[in-house]
Amino acid sequence: MAEEGQVIGIHSIDAWKEQLEKGVQTGKLIVVDFTASWCGPCRFIAPILAEIAKKTPEVTFLKVDVDELNPISEEWRVEAMPTFLFLKGGREVDRVVGAKKEDLQNAITKHATITAAA
């Protein structure tokens, strides 16, 4: 699949719903990076997330701009940036608030492993 190993930019509610449904069907872990153009810490973590995505093709990585798709960030109560939301089967299983590279990597490893085992 072409999207594997990349962070997929989401630009519409439809695209968001489609990715979520796909996640429910495949049982894959989805990691959503809630970001904003005006947020310095988001620019700090973006290349780190891209690197992780490259190494972790078994996880779907999405990127949502909170200004572009405000209803989604409101639905998931995103108040600080970046917020990384971990979804499995359409439900939140974890979240990392802030550009915390070690925590982000650890949470991805943890939940991706659980997915693989299940």
């Binding site: 310095g40 810490p41 700090f44 973590i45 940036m81 970046p82 915390k100």
Partner: peptide, 26 residues
């Protein structure tokens, strides 16, 4: 100033001799 790219910020911190370990914005 929030538009400062991260490389510029890193240069400033390099002059001071420290680095970013964690960050968040609202």
């Amino acid at each position: 100033l929030r538009k400062l790219d991260f490389e510029s910020l890193e240069q400033v911190l390099e002059a001071v001799q420290c680095t970013v370990v964690s960050a968040v914005g609202n």
